[in-house]
């Protein structure tokens, strides 16, 4: 069983059910759009998949392996990469270094190898540099590699987080509103990049408020409302779904 399988997952904060009984399966290589109004539970679902929040109920498996009890760094180790909705950058490090951190999971040199400059350290440094170079290139950030990450404008900070996630060579990429705060040209670049990534066979889950944008990219779309799945289908099916129009599109400006 390859791909991501979420079964009957629930997560509540105090009395509020942010996610209630969500089941979905994302096939290997699929680009899945997740849409829903503010507070629908999209980010919470992502955090439960990446392990930053523990699910109260339910099971999650990745390529047939149960992961719902693993801490986030182990899920990252299995190939889950997340770009958070809020900017989370490593201040005091350059853009290049921020991206290099992404390659942590694909390398293994530890303190001893680094302190003694063992061959494992040299091999990993070469590998990390190459992966970061490729990720910076893909996201158009090469010219900013030596800039202090904290001094980047907001849009580029978002691209940098995407570069960091790509540097990890993920098998499942979770993108929480990657297009928010981007200018029109940057947005088109992002769409182009996501197309390219999808064509490489990477499994992607994309949360996005811009329904038209999701419709252009997604193989299938899942609609969340009040923490539950209210519809799922191809972009065409979702556009015509009466419940979706009522609960979500109808309410949108």
């Amino acid at each position: 069983m390859s791909g991501l399988e979420v079964s009957a997952v629930a997560k509540h904060f105090g009395g509020v059910y942010a996610v209630r009984d969500v089941s979905l399966s994302v096939a290997d290589g699929e680009l899945r759009g997740i849409i829903g109004p503010n507070g629908a539970g999209k980010s919470t679902l992502f955090n439960v998949i990446s392990g930053h929040l523990a699910a109260d109920e339910g099971a999650i498996s990745l390529d047939g392996r149960r992961i719902e009890r693993l801490p986030p760094h182990q899920r990252a180790g299995l190939g889950v990469s997340i770009v958070f909705q809020a900017a989370r950058i490593f201040r005091g490090m350059t853009v290049g270094e921020n991206v290099m951190v992404g390659a942590h999971r694909t390398t293994s040199a530890g303190f001893t190898a680094a302190a003694l400059r063992l061959p494992a350290h040299r091999r990993d440094e070469r590998r990390i540099a190459a992966a970061a170079h490729a990720a910076l290139e893909m996201t158009g950030l090469s010219e900013f590699a030596d800039r202090d990450a904290g001094t980047l404008p907001h849009g580029l900070q978002r691209s940098m987080q995407l570069a960091r996630a790509l540097c990890a060579e993920p098998s499942l990429l979770l993108l929480d509103e990657p297009a928010s705060g981007l200018r029109a040209a940057e947005r088109e670049d992002l769409i182009e990049l996501l197309r390219k990534l999808r064509d490489t066979g990477l499994t992607i889950m994309l949360v996005e408020h811009d329904v038209a944008l999701v419709g252009r990219l997604a193989d299938r779309i899942t609609v969340l409302d009040l923490g539950a799945v209210i519809a799922e289908g191809t972009p065409g099916q979702i556009r015509d779904h009466p419940q979706v129009i009522a609960a979500y599109l109808g309410a949108a400006p």
């Binding site: 990446s50 392990g51 930053h52 801490p71 986030p72 760094h73 990252a76 180790g77 990469s81 997340i82 958070f84 989370r88 950058i89 490593f90 201040r91 005091g92 490090m93 270094e97 921020n98 290099m100 951190v101 992404g102 390659a103 942590h104 999971r105 390398t107 040199a109 530890g110 303190f111 190898a113 680094a114 302190a115 003694l116 400059r117 350290h121 990993d124 440094e125 990390i128 987080q161 960091r164 990890a168």
Partner: peptide, 27 residues
């Protein structure tokens, strides 16, 4: 040697965002 290396970058990363460091696979 430690600072200019994979574990060194991991340490500097977790100093400013433990959440993002974990999401990069850093224990």
């Amino acid at each position: 040697n430690v600072i200019q290396s994979r574990p060194g970058r991991a340490l500097r990363a977790l100093a400013t965002s433990e959440v993002a460091a974990e999401s990069a696979g850093i224990p």
